[in-house]
Design a binder for these strands. Structure first.
Lengths: 246, 246
DNA sequence: AACCAGGTTTCATGTAATGAAACGCGAGAG
DNA sequence: CTCTCGCGTTTCATTACATGAAACCTGGTT
């Protein structure tokens, strides 16, 4: 209990409850209680508050909770014309058309990355990327890009975090990062998902910080390492233009 | 102070803060404080909590707050394949193509309605409907539909609410509702917006409750009262089909 | 330099959040 | 038909913790 928390516990708990709904979209009271480890009466009170304000609604039959209209409303007002995912969509689409493979955009969020936009290849065999998916930073081309160009302090924190997977050797990973910074791109062959390969590049904002990672991905059968490297300059060029739009 | 509140004050306040961002998408600490009438130190603590959990982020230059990634993430997980707005979109588009005018979908939320989906007419002169807009229940074709088919208890509560606008005569309104229930549709000529006319019908769910209002709207120059009445059956038919999809 | 308008931190105070326990209630089970 | 179990709801004593006044920073203006 060193540094006193300058946050509000009740609110933290309420927000944690909301975040439960990214895992499952319908939850019962007791489920939530056990999920975040609180007494059901406490959760009940918090849920009543959330429901009162329209952040959750309850299914009148099952009595389970789901996210409410207010969340939707906030998201609408958020994404109106200023969210990068919407602004970069056209550029991503033209890149997809040029490359013929699925193109995705990732943001780093703490010790994870999150796919905020994706346009699918229209080939018969293709990677299907779900928008909103949360993925680890330990594997995948975009992950390595996001980590490689992160602030050194962040980088070490991520690598030394207790939940860094055993299976990923830290030193080997660090070594890769050096190359990635030099090359300006990262590739991955079936790192996270069997059968999938990808190449990713950073998108820098005006201040020269990584704003996002742009990736192209598809089946290994179509994408050899050499082929990925060929594509890298095209991605870089697109990323540079996108950086101007952020 | 009759019935004790079974909600959590700190959480209520935090949620109120989040809702401020439907009005303005970037807010400074003091703005928020005055907006909801709290001391800035209290707001600061609440904001720190919201920021910590990623529900708001602050613009590093202006120091102002805006909604964060978590809100977006929640909304993505919410609307994946189960939100009516997405499921009804194709039906609305075909209706728009058939009628040539803007088609909108409204939900009642308390004493307001909210436009959850809209497909725009592609004529040169057209109504432009913003998704996410919050509108009063006192005027407009969709409002009248939503009120007319609401539960009687709700209906009276709405009409007797202190914030019912003076300009709208309650008795005249009640009288209209009777006709609307009988006809199964409502029309409005420049009620809410000068130059705009609309016809709206209810969408019932399987239990026979109004789930939403479906409306077609356009410039009065194109849409006379007779013309609107002509369109009503087409809307009803579409609404019936949509009801099956909810 | 003096000021001001933000934001941040501190701290004493007592409100209000908490969780144990009791209550209600419907669904199966026996 | 009663019993019991699981789940949601309510009550209540306790004190942790949210609160807001005030002091403290900080960078920008006059």
């Amino acid at each position: 209990m060193e540094d006193r928390k300058l946050t509000v516990r009740a609110v933290e708990r309420a927000l944690d409850i909301l975040l439960c709904f990214t895992k499952s979209k319908e939850l019962a009271l007791t489920e939530i209680a056990s999920l975040i480890g609180l007494h059901k009466s406490t959760v009940h009170r918090l849920m009543a508050t959330l429901e009162d304000k329209g952040f959750v609604v309850r299914n009148s039959e099952t009595e389970k909770y789901r996210l409410g209209l207010k969340i939707w409303e906030l998201s609408v007002h958020m994404s109106q014309s200023d969210d990068p995912a919407a602004r970069l969509l056209p550029a991503m689409e033209s890149l997809r058309d040029r490359l013929g493979e699925t193109v995705s955009l990732y943001l780093r969020d703490g010790a994870e990355r999150i796919r905020i936009q994706a346009v699918q290849s229209n080939q018969a065999i293709r990677r299907v990327a779900q928008v909103g998916a949360r993925l680890p930073l330990s594997v995948g081309a975009s992950s390595k890009v996001l980590v490689a160009f992160a602030a050194p302090a962040d980088q070490e924190e991520l690598l030394n975090a207790p939940d860094w997977p055993e299976s990923v050797d830290r030193d080997a990973y660090r070594k890769q990062l050096v190359d990635i910074i030099q090359d300006g791109y990262a590739i991955s062959m079936e790192e996270r998902e069997p059968g999938a390969a990808a190449v990713a590049v950073p998108i820098f904002d005006r201040n020269g910080k990584v704003a996002a990672a742009l990736s192209m991905s598809g089946p290994v059968t179509r994408l050899s390492a050499e082929k990925l490297r060929e594509y890298a300059p095209i991605l870089k060029e697109a990323a540079h233009e996108m950086g101007m739009m952020i």
